[in-house]
Simulated assay, not measured.
Amino acid sequence: MALAGRRARRRGVDIWPGFVDALATLLMAMIFVLLVFVLAQYFLGNALSGREQALNRLGAEMAALAEQLSLEKKANQSLQADLGRLSGQLTSSEAERERLGHDVAALDALKAQLEARVAELDGKLGEAGTALEGERQVSAQARAELALLAQQVEAAKQELARVAAALEAAEKAGADQKVQIADLGKRLNLALAGKVEELQRYRSEFFGRLRQVLGNRPGIRIEGDRFVFQSELLFDTASAELGLEGITQVRALAKTLNELSAQIPKEINWVLRVDGHTDRRPIASGRYPSNWELSTARAITVVQTLVANGVPPDRLAAAGFGEFQPLDKGETADALAKNRRIEIRLDQR
């Protein structure tokens, strides 16, 4: 019995090594799971951080666009206020001239009435004088009537002189008003013509300098008052990222613009407009839902590159027109390629 007890105790002690091994294996498995979880958390955090940076960058771009739009609206409101003020002045001048015209007409009528009255009184005075001259004895009543008539004639003459003076003053004021209105319109037209002519001169110089820099390169042409870059020269298909050739072209444009802007007087409120255009084919890209977004993104890319190369941002504007302003309405490959373009124009705000 004692031997059997000892054997039973020996078998009970032999269970512990296996239990310890199982516990160690379980512990290692838990450590491995925790390690995998920590690594997953790390990579997920990096991915979320990258997306947050992209969202911040997009937010900054949207803020810049909003600021440019606000500047455009303020400039437009200022021009509208100036136009309203000038229109108000002109309307007031027209109303004053019309009032003076009515006054002149009224004075003319009053003058005619007074002249008729004076003629009537002169006739009565003449009749009375003739009658009194024919009579040798003039009564006191006749002399009183004659004196009264003479006073009335004198008062009428004084009133006529006053009306004539008022009429002359009114005519002179009307003439001065007309001269002021004509002079104001002339000075306004001369100022506007001067600004337009000066901007046109710098625009011509800008085009000449840019033509020298770019030369007769394929994919660049002149349409009216703007330079036209074919999109394939600057961007890949369905992309708003400038290629190497596109970066070279935009840097050359920035250099020319910086040299010319130093010569343009500060009082000329000029701006360089960058317009993006696409063809009419729907875009097949998840990044840009429509041609509006693609054309606008390309124009913004060009503007940002110009700013990065020293062009003041307050002298730049970006706009996207999608496929809605084609140069060629045909359906051929050449017509579609002609419509995919970036237009650059020097304009006045």
Rank of each mutant, 00 (worst) to 15 (best):
G194C: 06
Q180Y: 08
E115I: 01
L167D: 08
L39A: 08
E343N: 03
G330M: 03
E72M: 09
G12D: 09
L121V: 08
F206Y: 10
Q348Y: 07
A175Q: 15
V38F: 14
K124N: 10
E52D: 07
P265V: 00
P312N: 05
A131F: 12
E67R: 00
A112Q: 03
R287N: 08
D225G: 04
A169S: 06
S93H: 09
E154N: 09
L27I: 13
M1R: 12
R162K: 05
A128K: 07
L184K: 14
G174I: 02
A173Y: 05
L121K: 03
D176S: 05
T25M: 04
A170Q: 09
L146N: 14
N339V: 05
F324S: 10
E171R: 15
A131G: 12
L26D: 04
E159C: 00
G59A: 14
F206G: 00
A75M: 08
I342Q: 08
G88P: 01
G129C: 14
Q304M: 09
L167E: 12
K111R: 14
I220F: 02
L257Y: 14
F32D: 06
Q325H: 14
F321K: 03
G219A: 00
D328M: 02
G219M: 02
A335G: 06
A64S: 11
I220T: 05
G185R: 15
E72K: 13
A193P: 01
L316K: 00
E323C: 01
Q137A: 11
T256V: 15
L242F: 01
K178W: 11
E115M: 00
I15Q: 09
V196C: 08
M28A: 13
Q200S: 12
Y42G: 09
Q348H: 11
R281S: 05
A166G: 01
T332V: 07
G59T: 13
A318M: 04
W292N: 14
L110V: 03
P312C: 04
E343T: 10
L294V: 01
R7I: 11
